[in-house]
Amino acid sequence: MIKLQAEDFDIGAELAALTGGQHDIGGLAVFVGLVRAEAAGDGAPAAVEAMTLEHYPGMTRKMLAGIERKAQSRWPLSASLILHRYGRLVPGDRIVMAACASSHRHAAFEACQFLMDWLKTEAPFWKLEERQGEARWVEARKSDEAAQKRWEQG
């Protein structure tokens, strides 16, 4: 299931809805990403005060659904969820959630990590950081690309 929303989410309610009524699930792995108050440094004058997530609505949904399908074809998943927020967020806010349910834990853990690694490089989101009133677009990280590539070899 793919969810794109500006609003915050309730982790418990999302997981209950995802797995409700399914009795073949033995493990549920969940990742929740939060906005971090990244400190000053690397040319940045102050800590992050807010972050605005912009995205490309039609393509975001399409890419996230594709990433979820890849995970489903690779692991035996009973249920999966990618929930991503957009709009202006502040440190401590929930930004993304990935959840994978399977009969055993290994598939659930691996698939959840796979979703996040692919999402970082394939989903069309951009982050505008605010530090001391100055806005700056966050650059993509090479380490994220390497994390995604690792799955292509396996």
Partner: peptide, 10 residues
């Protein structure tokens, strides 16, 4: 056709 910088989601 869309143009944008490398993506930074998650």
């Amino acid at each position: 056709v869309a143009f944008f910088p490398p993506v930074t989601g998650g």
